[in-house]
Design a protein around this nucleic acid. Sequence first.
DNA 1: ACCTGAACACCGTTCAAGT
DNA 2: ACCTGAACACCGTTCAAGT
Lengths: 224, 224
Amino acid sequence: MAKKAPRAPARRDAALSQERIVGAAIELLDEQGEEGLTFRALATRLATGSGAIYWHVTNKSELLVVATNAVVARTLSDRLPSSSPRKAIRDVAVCVFEIVDAHPWLGAQLWRAPSPTAMLQIFERIGRQVQALGVRGSAQFTSVSALVSYILGVSVQNAESRRTFEPSADRAEFLAKEATRWKELDPEEYSFTRSVATQLRKHDDRTEFLAGIDLILAGIGASK
Amino acid sequence: MAKKAPRAPARRDAALSQERIVGAAIELLDEQGEEGLTFRALATRLATGSGAIYWHVTNKSELLVVATNAVVARTLSDRLPSSSPRKAIRDVAVCVFEIVDAHPWLGAQLWRAPSPTAMLQIFERIGRQVQALGVRGSAQFTSVSALVSYILGVSVQNAESRRTFEPSADRAEFLAKEATRWKELDPEEYSFTRSVATQLRKHDDRTEFLAGIDLILAGIGASK
DNA sequence: ACCTGAACACCGTTCAAGT
DNA sequence: ACCTGAACACCGTTCAAGT
């Protein structure tokens, strides 16, 4: 369905390498989504044969894993230490949210990854800050797991809904339409959902996301 | 890869219907995972031609949506009211966790669904209990969103990791191996992750999951 | 060692032809 | 109205053949 932009095939000077392949794969993924990543399309963009790619990459699944790790590592690596643990956690959260928002195909990948380097990086970063908050013992593991699950869950969900509802369709318009749908639900069966339809229309994704983080942080504080 | 169990083709007595098709699709999905659901396999099981299915279902994507809604509705519908809102929330959470655990293919679907009936049902159920907790105003929307995101996030992640790591490979064994991997990480870069490796090995998924719910509930209570 | 591109075994989907 | 199954336009992956 996505129109395959003809885009001048890369000059075939440089030798093929996993790095170049992964780079081209990320471009394709960003431009056309997961279904745009095809060994044929990749070969065309790299001005080579589709079989050549297999010399540098085991298969498509591995290619996706490597691409995922590349994007996450690239973006997460240059985070500066923040003033407070609480602020640092919010920073990492927003950072993940934005990576997934900018590369919606990441969503589906983040869970997989036989050795999920990407997720481990997020886990470690959040973990240090939870330690800094003064959480002790087994509560550390629990708190970090909850935060990471929440962060990934919201990020993926956000990216997925953006992917399904047409390109950059007006967000406000989409929310208005969805809110209307909520208001028209059965009053008996969906009384709560109907009652918050207006909130749905007015809400800001990032604000809600951070409010959720604060809720968990408050819970962590309360159980300490 | 999954061996296609020959399984006697259904007697071709009953006429084809969306209901029968969806039923067979769910069976296929449960037995062989998402990649086992094929129009050819479906046609074989229903003892019909692959084209016939299109008379009752628009395409594969719609089939997955309908199957998802069917499973969620079926399981979520017969939940009894619980003694306290807090307990009711935990019940819904566990219920979702178990549905996704029993039907790992649900994970990928739950986010999508152009009109996500399945998610709305969960949203509504949690919403009522949050109201019952005495949360008021815009905090309702925020609290429910956070809970639902968390519940879905953990459930999907759990199902996905179970899917990736071979069938019913011994869970304890897998955790032990993963914990070892954590302990061997770079001491500088992954100090926190290393320090909780033992917890990873000993943790119970459901207990951790519920502990996370409690964390959010504590946060909701604290911000009230 | 690395690349080429035809070939193979699959898919989802369509559609003329049947009943 | 509903079903059949060959045909079409794709995939990922393999592999003999080239350099």
